[in-house]
């Protein structure tokens, strides 16, 4: 497990190397293609995140006290966003996930390119990731 803040710094550094939007978007598309895909059997309505303009499915499993996230979306840019989030949130313990700060999102300039509706979708994703951590903790107690 790498420290969540270290991963966030890494992402911020990657994004700051682009000086135009097209490169930044192309990188997001690349990240979208590398998203750890959800098992088709979990790609069900129950795992859909509400508040996104495209469909986003999210699933989590626990491995050795850590949460492993997988996801999918029908839009590639959305897959890119969720891939960034999963890189930060996956393979962490529930406490770290629950307490995680997410100001790195502002730092990578992503929000400037999201309309309020899309930004809401991003917040819904973060909320959902944290909810999985809460649920996992409640179960283990």
């Amino acid at each position: 497990m790498t420290d969540m803040l270290a991963i966030q710094d890494e992402i911020v550094a990657e994004f700051s190397s682009f000086d135009n939007w097209a490169d930044r978007y192309e990188y997001m598309i690349e990240l979208g293609k590398s998203l750890p895909l959800i098992d088709p059997k979990y790609k069900v309505d129950n795992n859909l995140i509400k508040g996104c303009q495209s469909n986003v499915w999210l699933h989590s499993e626990t491995n050795d006290g850590k949460l492993i996230f997988t996801a999918d979306s029908d839009a590639i840019l959305t897959k890119g966003i969720i891939a960034i989030l999963i890189r930060v949130f996956s393979n962490q313990d529930p406490d770290s996930i629950m307490e995680a700060k997410t100001d790195f999102i502002d730092k990578i300039g992503l929000k400037n390119h999201l309309s309020p509706i899309r930004a809401n979708g991003l917040l819904s994703m973060i909320k959902e990731l944290k909810m999985y951590a809460v649920k996992s903790k409640t179960r283990s107690n």
Partner: peptide, 13 residues
């Protein structure tokens, strides 16, 4: 093969 959301986002850019 392309979602309308992706096309719309890039056109906006």
């Amino acid at each position: 093969g392309i979602h309308h959301y992706d096309l719309g986002s890039l056109l906006d850019q």
